[in-house]
């Protein structure tokens, strides 16, 4: 286990724990307005202070983590569910028109600035968490397709795949039974990284008002609300910002650590 992996996993589980906890317990009702207590800096009662409506920031951060995690998780799920089969298929027919079509399609999606298209989609179909998920998810597809194809291509050259072919298994069965388990590590690492990118993207979309809509709490929208008040209540911006940074940093460190840990070649090199 590397240091990165331990720190990353600790930070990430902290966030996941907060999200899970928020279903059963938050210090205060996250939606309860309490104007007399508004804009309090962090204190023993309100650990992260209160916002301009006197809502407890700690509770809002806890509940907001659900939005971030849900959006990013589903977006990664979309990317994997579509990208991995595409990558596997392309690899079985290397150089064929199908492979060419899939790879050129990938290039095309890569060429689009993802945020711009996310903005287009949410502009046309309306702002909301679902559309944000779709917009972020679409851009995960080529990432997973490309990484799966690359890894699968080198696996197809290996003897154990040849053995499977000799034993009469078809390309589809080999892909699922032998290729997929061997690219799983890679997919987990990439999934972690895409997860963190998804959290950043969700925060950005929510910040400009195209992500989760009120009353669903979201870190990005908390930052948008904070913008006009940052000069006299900096904690309004510092706290949701730190929540995003801790989550993304944790996931990235975990991704790096997992890569080192799961890749035996690197392990040998280190020892």
């Amino acid at each position: 286990m590397t240091r990165n992996l331990i720190i990353g996993a600790a930070l990430s589980s902290l966030v996941v724990l907060a999200a899970v906890m928020s279903f059963v317990w938050t210090p205060f009702d996250y939606a309860a307005l309490n104007i007399p207590d508004k804009l309090q800096p962090p204190n023993p009662t309100h650990w992260f202070g209160t916002d301009h409506f006197g809502r407890d920031m700690f509770s809002m951060i806890m509940v907001g983590s659900r939005t971030s995690i849900a959006v990013a998780l589903v977006a990664v799920g979309i990317g994997m569910a579509a990208g991995v089969p595409l990558g596997l298929t392309a690899a079985t027919r290397k150089g064929s028109w199908l492979d060419e079509l899939i790879m050129r399609g990938n290039d095309l999606v890569f060429a689009f600035p993802s945020l711009v298209i996310a903005i287009l989609i949410t502009a046309v179909f309306g702002a909301g968490a679902i559309n944000a998920i779709i917009a972020i998810g679409i851009f995960n597809i080529p990432v997973f397709a490309r990484i799966t194809r690359g890894a699968a291509l080198s696996l197809w050259e290996r003897e154990f795949i040849l053995a499977a072919r000799v034993s009469g298994k078809g390309a589809a069965r080999i892909s699922v039974e032998h290729i997929l388990p061997n690219v799983a590590n890679l997919l987990i690492v990439q999934g972690t990284i895409q997860f963190s990118l998804g959290i950043l993207a969700e925060a950005g979309l929510s910040y400009v008002g195209l992500g989760a809509q009120p009353p669903t709490p979201s870190w990005g929208r908390m930052l948008a609300d904070a913008q006009t008040m940052v000069s006299f209540a900096p904690h309004l911006a510092l706290i949701p910002g730190s929540a995003i940074i801790v989550t993304v940093l944790g996931l990235n460190l975990m991704g790096d650590g997992l890569r080192d840990w799961l890749d035996p070649r690197l392990r040998v090199a280190r020892s």
């Binding site: 940052v230 900096p234 940074i245």
Partner: peptide, 18 residues
């Protein structure tokens, strides 16, 4: 650089303004 990648740029912008 790990920290730099994790910081959302619009949040960093707000802090710069502050």
């Amino acid at each position: 650089t790990q920290l730099g990648i994790a910081i959302p740029n619009f949040w960093f912008a707000m802090i710069l303004v502050l």
